[in-house]
């Protein structure tokens, strides 16, 4: 494995993770980025800590199992946060594609070798895949937000009608009596 792309990434893993985290956090305003990076208490800083925990895990998944459920467990929390913050869809998910740039920079010498380059192309396909998963998660979150807002409004209106006596619900029992299928 020593000279394979995977081995090379493993060797520089620490640096790659640092750069990837840095690039993700730099999408926030400078003062905010400083706080998200600096505060290590996970309860005082959920955004920074969710990101710093997720990134090494995702790199590991890209290198090894690439298991969608495992990826979701760490990608969803990051995307869930970015989906409610002040980002466009591309800004919210772009940090994943950023990894390509980081790998090219960190491994510029090693990638002179055509065999490594070929491996990199395959690895980049995984990154693309991860990016698409992020977009799906992002959309789930956005839909959830609208669903929550819509349900809140619906429930308020529905209850007001119900309490004004304008709604009569068919009871379980009367359904049975009339032979109507639920």
């Amino acid at each position: 494995m020593g000279n394979s792309l995977k081995g090379l990434i493993e060797k520089k893993k620490k640096d790659i993770i640092r750069h990837w985290f840095e690039a993700t956090i730099q999408t926030y305003a400078p003062d905010t980025a400083q706080f998200y990076k600096g505060q290590k208490d996970e309860f005082a800083n959920p955004v920074g800590n969710t990101t710093s925990e997720g990134i090494p895990f995702l790199l590991d998944q890209l290198l090894n199992d690439f298991d969608s459920e495992a990826i979701k467990s760490h990608l969803d929390p990051i995307i869930r946060i970015r989906a409610v913050q002040n980002f466009t869809p591309s800004q919210a998910t772009a940090f994943i594609l950023k990894l390509k740039e980081i790998l090219r920079d960190c491994l510029s010498d090693e990638l002179q070798d055509a065999a490594r380059l070929k491996e990199l192309l395959a690895f980049e396909s995984r990154i693309d895949q991860l990016s698409l998963m992020a977009f799906d998660l992002y959309m789930n979150c956005r839909e959830k937000i609208y669903e929550i807002a819509a349900n809140e409004t619906r429930n308020q209106t529905f209850r007001a009608f119900k309490r004004a006596g304008l709604i009569v619900e068919p009871s379980e029992r009367s359904r049975k009596v009339k032979g109507v299928k639920p």
């Binding site: 926030y28 305003a29 905010t32 998200y36 955004v47 409610v84 913050q85 002040n86």
Partner: peptide, 14 residues
């Protein structure tokens, strides 16, 4: 006080 506000922590808006 800067990093104690839930709105700052959550929105990231300085």
């Amino acid at each position: 006080c800067a990093d104690k506000c839930h709105y700052f922590i959550g929105t990231g808006d300085p």
